[in-house]
Design a protein around this nucleic acid. Structure first.
Length: 485
RNA sequence: GGCCCCAUAGUGAAGUGGUUAACACAACAGCCUUUCACGCUGUAGACGCGGGUUCGAAUCCCGCUGGGGUCACCA
């Protein structure tokens, strides 16, 4: 049994797309579920695109997500270097090897010639390299290289026939060779193209499962041909479908929240994000939906991978995040929520511990805490109609009446705590012989100004304190009285 | 446009020739002797269309439609 080895090979672009993170996750899981090894490799062959701090983003994300790699640029390993720009000679050597064996050839065509040919072709996007340099005399080619002429190395594709390859999720796929371009392997700057570097690195690093997005599905035949040209064993391909924003729209950075960092900063828990994206395109085949990374490492399977693109559903992510939030210990919840709490409560006399307690079962995303508790420090303006409550037949006159009763009852209290507030108000309800909601609904609206609050009326009253509560209640009474007139 | 791939409710999905076609999110309703939330219960909602094959198709084949990917000295 050969050891399963997989690799996540991001390009240092400066941010981690949520789809990339999912690819990383699946790649990691495939390795772990087989007790294999997981490698991080940096694909920076496009020097023009290099972003300086981009590596840090990658390292941090991997660490945050708990995707530990056994080998990588920052942890070392026996198959290094793990940064493609440091492997230049390796690619050049292998490219030459293919030239020598007749599977590739130097091409001196200028970009100008190529672009012109492309543009002058009848229909856009159908032009393929015309193999202009393919049959160049080797001696002639050598002379031009020696003369310092700029050139690239191209892969020689079969003239006819078809190429078939097997993908672990899509099965057998066959394409006509006429579709295959004599693709560039080594660029003029002697850097390899992605396609070439991948084949060489994956083989040299002993990668057994090549995991990547479906955008590479159509270049897979070229990869196969390359492996064959080298006489290397073809790895297992695992192509992953993209994540969509809404039916027909690819999830992109443009939409604002496609990067992992954005979600993380908005107050989504890393465990929830991982859990959610794990299920976006993969199914365990059971009804289980909540998975820790540990469980995923046990249960992940290639067979559960989906063939069609999945739409990213923020609502479900929110729900899942709330599940994880509720599972947090009070201490953990406090730790995460504190900054958001402070935004509103800093400097106020509100008892933070109580607020935390009330909040945990109601928060879906941490960043929405401020707006949920804003009313504690300043009563928002609200419509009088909100004081009415259909369920208990509470119209404005009734609401006004009940608030007056509440006011009187609460004014008499010498001490201010939930238990006392509760018993007092219950007594009021009883003495009036009305439904509890008749008293409590208008009361809660008056002190909070909103229909939905963390905690019930008793809790809100206690948090606000007697003075503030009565002040707000009086405001509500005035408001209602004015409207009733 | 060529080539490749895909197709079950609004969304994620189970299903692999015979099922009342799961489950989850979202929606809606009810309950939880106060709202919201949590929880519980329930309701509505799907096999894209048309042909075959078969005693029998969501499951197999073909066409159509729709969607995705790709066609760079980017990855």
């Amino acid at each position: 049994m050969t050891t399963v080895r997989t690799r996540f090979a991001p390009s240092p672009t400066g941010y981690m797309h949520i789809g990339n993170l999912r690819t990383a996750l699946y790649t990691y899981l495939i390795a772990r579920v087989h007790n294999g090894e997981f490698i991080l490799r940096i694909e920076d062959t496009d020097q023009g695109r290099y972003v300086d701090d981009a590596l840090v983003v990658i390292y941090n994300t991997m660490q945050l997500a708990g995707l530990e790699y056994d080998e990588g640029p920052d942890v070392g390993g026996d198959y290094g270097p793990y940064v493609q720009s440091q492997r230049k000679e390796i690619y050049a050597k292998h490219a030459q090897q293919l030239v020598d064996s007749g599977h590739a050839y130097p091409c001196f065509c200028t970009l100008e010639r190529l672009n012109a040919a492309r543009e002058s072709s009848i229909t856009a996007g159908v032009w393929r390299y015309d193999r202009h340099c393919r049959e160049l005399n080797p001696t002639e080619a050598a002379r031009r290289i020696a003369a310092g002429e700029s050139y690239v190395i191209r892969q020689k594709m079969p003239e006819s026939g078809t190429t078939t390859f097997v993908d672990a999720v899509f099965g057998e796929i066959t394409v006509p060779n006429s579709e295959l371009e004599d693709q560039v392997l080594l660029k003029a700057d002697k850097m390899p193209t992605y396609n070439f570097a991948n084949v060489v690195d994956d083989h040299l690093m002993g990668i057994t499962h090549v995991v990547r997005g479906t955008e590479y599905l159509s270049s897979a035949p070229k990869y196969n041909l390359l492996y064959d040209a080298f006489g290397w064993e073809i790895p297992t391909y695992v192509h992953l479908t993209p994540i969509m924003r809404e039916p027909g729209k690819k999830l992109s950075k443009r939409h604002g929240d496609a990067s992992f960092g954005d979600f993380y900063q908005k107050g989504y828990l890393i465990e929830a994000i991982i859990n959610y994206i794990a299920l976006l395109g993969w199914s365990p085949g059971t009804k289980q939906e909540i998975f820790s990374l540990e469980e995923l490492k046990q249960q992940f399977s290639l067979s559960g991978l989906s063939k069609s693109p999945a739409v990213f559903d923020t609502k479900k992510l929110r729900w899942m995040n709330s599940v994880y939030i509720r599972q947090l210990s009070v201490e953990q919840f406090k730790e995460y929520g504190q900054p958001y709490l402070d935004q509103v409560l800093q400097g106020s006399a509100i008892a933070e511990d109580k607020v935390i307690e009330l909040l945990q079962s109601r928060v879906e995303v941490f960043s929405e805490i401020p707006q949920m508790i804003e009313f504690l420090v300043s009563l928002p303006d609200y419509q009088v109609e909100m004081l009415c409550h259909a369920k208990t037949d509470t119209g404005l006159p009734e609401a006004l009446e009940s608030m007056r009763h509440s006011y009187t009852a609460l004014l008499s209290l010498k001490t201010w705590n939930v238990a006392l507030i509760k018993s007092t108000l219950k007594a009021t309800v009883k003495s009036l012989g009305v439904k509890t909601g008749r008293i409590l609904w208008p009361l809660r609206i008056a002190v909070s100004g909103q229909e939905s609050t963390p905690g019930g009326a008793y809790d809100i009253l206690e948090l606000l304190g007697q003075e503030e509560s009565l002040k707000r209640l009086q405001l509500g009474i005035d408001k209602a009285a004015q409207a009733v007139k």
